[in-house]
Design a protein around this nucleic acid. Structure first.
Length: 438
RNA sequence: GGCCCCAUCGUCUAUCGGCUAGGACACGAGCUUUUCAUGCUCGGUAGAGGAGUUCGACUCUCCUUGGGGCUGCCA
């Protein structure tokens, strides 16, 4: 049996859509599972949009997700001579003909048309959709060369697949109709017809193709909002496939060994951002502590904050990592530790500080905290607990949190105070009491 | 209009004729000595409709309905 070869054939437009990258993921997994080759073909025939920058963005995006490809990237524009060679062959064998045509946008000229068989049934056994069939008479002849002499997608795509010796074409559902046409071209060219697998689309809540109007739709947007590539990869994989048991968070090795194209679902899947968010949190939780720490240091540094030598970073990481949903949330969660110039959330201030009696409460706390001998989370918690007399620490906890961090949420309060240290805590409580509380 | 495809909780899905229909996300309630979160426990919500095959159908067949795709000198 010959080697399995699959390809990912995007047209670089600057942004990579999640539906598209999911096709890449499935191709990659199929190749890695079967020990075949995963090839990249850049369909750069749209000169307007296929800029070097757009190609670079595509490559970076694949690298980010760990989609490494075998062999050299294949550029469609470079194969134009072969496209035209095939056209000549089709013309010579009577499978194609020239004709005058007027396009939809009014261009008139001579194009080359592919001649469809007039009878018979075109069939193929789709790896995910099963048996597919269509009467040849239901498909009209179609153009393969424009009036300006450039080859059209149908011929370019097929010739490239022949030249790259692609054995399995795994692509989006929107190509099924093309597949019937392409099979006819393969046959007319005397080339073996590859196996096909058509992937359903990712749709929005209304069941329409998921687009940028529905939220983040391009891979770069997920990267920029702090999603881990592993989380996006895993989520996209699960959108249409599962290992057959209840496992959802899978390692790359598990994905590769368990992936089965035949078990990919035929139905369109609705994109659920909430579940992706949950999965991202799962992946962040599982990150090695050192990696999370490095990420924290980098992001905090980028925001212009510096971490003092004496700061107990390990302790902060222990508190922060389990509750981080997006890496981008890290700087705002950390600001109060590394800067005295932290912003106060208006709503939190209004709700927790700007209330009658809070000023006295904070000043009383300053008094009590200053007497704490050992500045630890436990000792501070005991102090507040004593005050609350078993009636709930809420009335104390909330004002303290807003006073020292400016926010209504964050890591555990007493852990936060321990990290801040006595001096800063007392100064901030006093400052908030005098300037914000009533 | 024509052709092709699809149909289990709100969402992603398990079930390869035996189902008290399972899991996850989301949601609700509770617990973690009533801080945010994590974690844990519990809870509700599903087989589009109609025929047929069968001892038995969510699973097989057909019809209806609903949804999607394609129908370019785009890819």
């Amino acid at each position: 049996m010959s080697e399995i070869r699959v390809r990912f054939a995007p047209s670089p437009t600057g942004k990579v859509h999640i539906g598209n990258i999911r096709a890449a993921i499935y191709n990659w997994l199929f190749a890695r599972h079967t020990g075949g080759k995963f090839l990249l073909r850049v369909e750069d025939t749209d000169l307007e949009r296929s800029t070097p920058e757009a190609i670079q963005a595509l490559l970076e995006c694949m690298q980010w997700l760990g989609l490494d490809y075998d062999e050299e990237a294949f550029y469609q524009t470079k194969n134009k001579p072969r496209h035209m060679e095939a056209v000549e062959k089709l013309l010579a064998s009577g499978h194609a003909y020239k004709c005058e045509r007027t396009s939809r946008d009014g261009k008139t000229g001579e194009v080359v048309m592919f001649k469809m068989p007039r009878e018979g049934v075109i069939e193929f056994d789709d790896i995910v959709k099963g048996k597919m069939a269509k009467r040849a008479e239901d498909i009209q002849d179609f153009a393969i060369v424009r009036s300006d002499g450039s080859p059209i997608f149908h011929i370019a795509n097929v010739v490239d697949d022949i030249d790259q010796r692609v054995t399995h074409i795994i692509r989006g559902d929107d190509h099924v109709e093309n597949t019937f046409k392409h099979i006819c071209i393969f046959k007319a060219l005397g080339a073996p017809v590859p196996q096909y697998g058509h992937l359903s689309m990712i749709v929005n809540q209304q069941g329409k193709p998921y687009s940028k109007r529905d939220g983040a739709a391009f891979v770069g947007e997920f990267r920029d909002t702090g999603y881990l590539p592993e989380a996006l990869f895993n989520y996209l994989l699960l959108l249409g496939w599962n290992p057959g048991d209840d496992r959802e968070v899978l390692t790359k090795d598990e994905m590769i060994s368990l992936f089965d194209l035949e078990k990919v679902h035929v139905t369109a899947a609705k994109f659920d951002m909430k579940k992706l968010q949950w999965m991202n949190g799962e992946y962040i939780k599982r990150l090695p502590e050192a990696v999370f720490t490095a990420e924290l240091i980098r992001r905090v540094g980028e925001e212009g904050m510096s971490i003092p030598e004496s700061f107990d970073l390990k302790y902060l990481v222990g508190q922060l990592q389990v509750r981080t949903k997006f890496l981008n949330d890290i700087p705002s969660q950390c600001r109060c530790f590394f800067s005295d110039d932290y912003p106060f959330d208006d709503k939190a201030v209004e709700k927790r500080l700007a209330k009658e009696g809070v000023k006295a409460l904070l000043l009383d706390l300053v008094e009590r905290f200053s007497k704490v001998t050992e500045w630890t989370a436990q000792a501070l918690e005991n102090t507040v607990k004593e005050l609350s007399q078993g009636n709930g620490m809420g009335p104390w906890v909330h004002p303290i949190r807003v006073a020292v961090s400016g926010r209504g949420e964050g890591i555990g309060l007493f852990e936060m105070l321990q990290l801040l240290g006595r001096e800063k805590t007392l100064a901030r409580l006093e400052n908030a009491a005098m300037t914000k509380a009533l």
